[in-house]
Computed example of a mutant assay.
Amino acid sequence: MATWNFEWLTLKGDQRAGVRHQDDYQQLSSIFVQLAPDVLAFQEVDSPEALARVIPTEAYNVYFSDRYAALKDSTQSQQLTGFAVRKDWKVDDPRDLRQIALPDFFGVPSLRYGTYVVVTPPNQEPIHILSIHLKSGCFKQTHASRSCKKLSKQFGALADWVIAHGDKNILIAGDFNRYISDKQDPYWQQFRQTLLENTSAPTDIVNVTQSVRARCKARRYNWRTQTWNQVMYSRLVDHILVSESLASQWQYSYQHHFAYHRVMNYRLSDHCPVVATFKASER
């Protein structure tokens, strides 16, 4: 199982960070082939055509957020969530977790949906999986900014979803835009407390990426100087959460660190993929 925010994987050319050439796609594809996950939860992908530059579609089926149907003809690039799953795995594709997008009074969502699939590995029980990309701008602070208020509501929507599926195998993967691995992070603590205080059936979620070492080398575009700057992200915002039933099958997790020469010579992403290995997914 892996999660990867591709940073504007798009063919439309309207995003400076999304301008990539054939060599760049080949590098991204070689990294994906090296990781060879059974399931990839992806974020910031505009279209199946863009994803096909990275994912070998002869080996994987792709499932996009329900938002894609409404946005596919847009001339502007979109940040969509979704999955790529090995073709020999059974997949059901229910409706997205739209509540995480915080619909307004008229039902119009302002943020990204959580893509929801039910994956059944060969000879295993079904797993209910979300690919998410939460609100940016509240990485650690807890002040009452608009970003933090929205992120707090999103964690509440996630808790409601977990409670509704609490008797099933659950996995939530993606870009949380929050350092929930930090000791005693209040958003993470409140999320788990809500689950444990559920009166119908207390449940718990385990962050199997809690101790992953983050050392993601990347390049970030500076609009003021119009140059690319090298950066090192030493704190994790991409996580994989699982129910206790899956945590017992978890073996290890890690962040794939891009090689220095790849970062300097190719347009990759400002997120390094995060991988979790489970006994159920051994091949």
Rank of each mutant, 00 (worst) to 15 (best):
A2E: 09
N5A: 07
W8A: 11
W8E: 06
L9E: 05
L11R: 09
R16N: 05
A17G: 15
Q27V: 07
Q27M: 14
S30L: 02
V39L: 14
P48G: 06
P56T: 04
T57L: 05
Y60H: 02
N61V: 02
N61H: 11
K72S: 13
T75E: 14
Q78C: 07
L80D: 08
G82A: 06
F83I: 09
K87P: 08
W89H: 09
W89R: 10
K90H: 15
D96A: 02
L97F: 04
A101D: 10
G107T: 08
V108D: 10
T120Q: 14
P122S: 14
Q124F: 07
I127G: 05
I129S: 01
S131D: 02
G137M: 05
F139M: 06
A144R: 00
S147N: 12
A157K: 14
L158R: 04
L158C: 03
A164Q: 11
G166V: 04
K168I: 05
R178G: 00
Y179E: 09
D182Y: 11
Y187K: 09
Q189I: 01
I205T: 12
T209D: 12
T209E: 11
Q210W: 12
S211Q: 15
R215T: 12
K217F: 07
R219N: 14
R219C: 13
Y221I: 02
R224P: 00
R224D: 12
T225A: 02
W228C: 07
Y233P: 01
S234T: 15
L236P: 08
L246T: 08
S248T: 14
Q249R: 07
Q255E: 15
Q255N: 08
H256A: 09
H257F: 03
F258Y: 15
H261I: 08
M264H: 01
R267C: 00
L268P: 03
D270P: 02
V274M: 05
A276K: 00
F278H: 10
K279E: 14
E282F: 12
E282R: 15
